[in-house]
Design a binder for these strands. Structure first.
Lengths: 346, 346
DNA sequence: GCGAAATGCGTGAGCGCTAACATCGCTCGG
DNA sequence: CCGAGCGATGTTAGCGCTCACGCATTTCGC
């Protein structure tokens, strides 16, 4: 039984059930035009042989597409990881399969290189376009197969509405909210430890975290300090933020994500600055660990999993327009105040 | 240009190059028996049409398999996530595609349900068998297609050598080392906050973390306290560990992973116990954040990414025995002493 | 009660590719 | 100078499936 016995095909089932292969196909695909008695016979044969349709053959033959490829640059980041989970869940429930291909942030991928990652031309694809490699992949697919791609990234409601292949949340708005909160607490200004941007420059998109932060400061007539750029890793963040935390004039830092915030917390501790007494820290994403640091991180909750699901549904609609066009339906980002934020010392 | 134009097939290339489709196939697959001039003509035609072979058709036609499916129950756990990254990297370098299917720990999957996740019979599969759903999936595939599967999990060197489809590290040995370290520090005994086991019972495998811990305590003639079972999430860990940290008799806790350790750290803080003064805490996995908690976590480093790569290579060997059988070649787990461990107060 | 539509099923072609064999022309030993 | 031998190519037959038909039977409107 454990030997590599060849799997049953549609023909085997047809023979056993005494019908044509096409009838088996009809039963498998739930066509209504099959007599109940025939259907039962076929079903029985299927069960007996343990027949399972071969997905590859199915899509080769021009049947419905049943796979998505996810392009992302970093699976260890909480956002993409959670979005991937959302995509996988949604896909699973429809029996689609999910492939994943990781873009290396170190190489500059050529267009051909990106296209070569897709198992075939026209493969439905979701791109995590929150960073440079992602943005590049987005552009390539937009040029080659715009009808079979969806990109996830930080965009304003207007941008989202304008581009039917875009899914995401308005990080800028959320960052603005967080910044406003810190200002209301009485901080003179708020500094920013920034994640790498997708465009390579700050303020590249209105929905970027750094942009929302800067906007609020400007509107409030405050000084807008130079944002401190950090890489994605905690180690990079730690190095980048050290000068900032040791400056006593800095009383509040908005961090691009919770990992950066953790590094900031650590750096503040080592610099002998108490949090939130001397320094308020606000993170981003509400990563699971953020509630359990000491002190617990004030952060911005983001429902990436729902965004991932939304991306999948949108993609499905784009690939097969007979499915409903989903409306964005995830919660807005929301500030969660915990222990790392408070009023500045007078 | 942006319209859904059909992609070029092998026939289109053949026509343009003035050869048969088989010759194109030979060129694409690097067969040596093609005249240089012909090869160049074909290559030129390929470039002109932007032809890319269709993976689906290729494997349908019985060509080499070029895809792996990874079955895992939790992509947010550091171990599986890192192993997946290793698999993806190794696969990418050979142009294999990687699919992922997440097992829901909540349902009991039927055998058929697990098999239905594979895109076709005989699909090469890697299973993350560190928990109950993973173990079950492992068993199902072992029964149905043992030649095209590899499982990753905690196993001793002997177990690994005995099962040619197994890859992993000896967590028990690493846990033993960590426990010994705590004992040498002078702790009377060491408590254990345990991750869920793959078998549902403690001590189910010699290479389990809880097993290594218990073994050392027994060997040292110490009392072996009842291990405290926790779920995988930080929140569950926090609830589970509270009674433990508030017991002043407890001076050292070995945690099943760094997330549990973080929860323990938090619980200790809230219970007013200083770390490592009143309580030593040791984690597991050397999750990136672990160096940046305050105090920084003492933990056990594990190179999951290498294990993932090893799993992929082993799978490739099993599917196609003409490829070399890889030898396990990853670093042993290693204790990293940071700030959460120290001698007990006298 | 007769034509038209609906139903139930089968046939043939083809998706893009590879494996296996067939064919052609050339070189080379004797 | 002829056939064995080989290298370079073409031909054929699928892989497992779906589409687009085709052809009987039934069902139904009026």
């Amino acid at each position: 039984m454990a030997q590599p016995k060849k799997a049953a095909s549609i023909w085997d089932v047809a023979r056993l059930a005494g019908v044509s292969h096409q009838t088996v196909s009809r039963v498998v695909n739930g066509s209504p035009r099959v007599a109940a008695a025939t259907r039962d016979k076929v079903l029985e044969a299927i069960a007996e042989l343990g027949y399972r349709p071969n997905r590859l053959a199915r899509s080769l033959a021009g049947g419905a597409v049943e796979s998505v490829t996810v392009l992302t640059a970093d699976t260890s980041l909480y956002g993409p990881e959670a979005a991937l989970r959302g995509i996988e869940k949604a896909a699973r429930s429809l029996e689609w399969s999910v492939s994943i291909s990781v873009l290396d942030p170190a190489d500059t991928h050529s267009d051909a290189d990106i296209i070569a990652r897709l198992p075939r031309a026209g493969e439905p694809t979701i791109i995590m376009a929150h960073d440079e490699p992602g943005m590049r992949a987005k552009q390539v697919l937009l040029d080659t197969q715009p009808h079979a791609m969806v990109a996830i990234g930080p965009y304003t409601a207007d941008e989202l509405a304008a581009s039917p292949w875009l899914v995401g949340m308005d990080d800028g708005k959320a960052a603005a909210e967080a910044t406003r909160y810190l200002l209301e607490l009485g901080h003179e200004t708020v500094h920013h430890l920034a994640i790498p941007t997708s465009t390579g420059t700050f303020g590249g998109g209105k929905a970027h975290r750094a942009d929302g932060w800067a906007r609020v400061l400007r509107e409030a007539g405050r000084e807008v300090p130079e944002p401190v750029p950090s890489g994605w890793t905690i180690t990079e963040a730690f190095k980048a933020v050290r000068p900032l935390v040791s400056d006593p004039a800095v009383t509040a830092i908005l961090c691009g994500n919770d990992h950066l915030a953790l590094a900031t917390l650590r750096a503040a501790h080592l610099a002998g600055r108490s949090v939130p007494g001397d320094l308020s820290i606000v993170g981003f994403d509400n990563t699971p660990f953020s509630a359990f640091t000491t002190p617990a991180l004030t952060t911005v909750n983001q429902d990436f999993e729902s965004v991932g699901r939304g991306a999948f549904e949108l993609l499905r609609h784009r690939v097969d327009s007979s499915t409903p066009r989903p409306r964005p339906s995830w919660p807005e980002p929301e500030l969660i105040v915990r222990e790392t934020s408070g009023p500045p010392r007078p």
